[in-house]
Design a protein around this nucleic acid. Sequence first.
DNA 1: ATGACGTCCTGCCTGC
DNA 2: TGCAGGCAGGACGTCA
Length: 299
Amino acid sequence: MPELPEVQTTVKDLEKKIIGLRIIDVWTDAPRLIKRPSFETFKKQIKGAKIEKISRRGKNILIHLNPKSKTQKSKLILLIHQKLTGHLLYGSWIMKEGSWTPAQKGPLEERVNQYIHLLFFLNNGKMLALSDLRKFAKVILGPKEEIENLAELKNLGIEPLDRKFTFEKFKEIIQQTPSKRKIKQVLMDQTIISGIGNIYSDEILWEAKIHPFKLSYKLNNQELKAIYQAIKKILTKAIKLRGTSISDFRDPRGREGKYTEIRSVYRREGEPCYRCGSKIKKVKIGGRSAYFCPKCQKT
DNA sequence: ATGACGTCCTGCCTGC
DNA sequence: TGCAGGCAGGACGTCA
């Protein structure tokens, strides 16, 4: 599932490919992915728009557009949240027997093609595709100010790789959250820190040697410091390795992320801990799975 | 107000 | 063998 490192990889790759291009048409077979406006309006507003910028906020991708229409004075933002199985892909496809098939041979010759549900046709002959097996992805188009004021962006917590995210700030945030929740749940709460999901919360807690069940308000200074440093370290390393493809993340060209190979705990149940050799355990926290080393992660 | 749980969706895996 | 049922999971809505 795309978390901060995967979304960052996607955004940085797309930046090199699609800035300056125009969207000349749109196709979908799953209009429900577009939460607003209606697909009809969506298509009308986006046709002819020029892609000016692409950025990330939490796990959201923001594509900044300059509309063609003179009646639309405001700039637009296309917000895409890939949720669990969404992929933004860049390439060219042709419709063959009811499904989109890559026009050229390459890494895109994979399952992801089968699940393309939204396509933007660009003025260089290429396409930007949203592939999504489970159709959970969320797409919203609207004027810049409106999108920036959406609750889903406004309520997001601090960016963990921002310079403003200092240890003092982290400590303050955690201590301001008088929550009886487990640290894993707090790390995954997007309104506290944005961008961390199930994979990296497990990886961070293993790195920090903290049990996922540990209650966040009970963490002492030393433990908080360990978690803080692990957040920075793990996310930075994952970005460098272009993300994790344990479920099915692919970059815009269909390539896998390499963090998968060096992950410590996520989906490694029964396999040895790289620190102490104990078998990695899997437990449930609020309906979600959590992987950890029962020996070196302390409650 | 806080936290727990159900919901969306579909491929894959398990077990009878 | 075949098929029903469970599981995976981010974020939001609902409920206690």
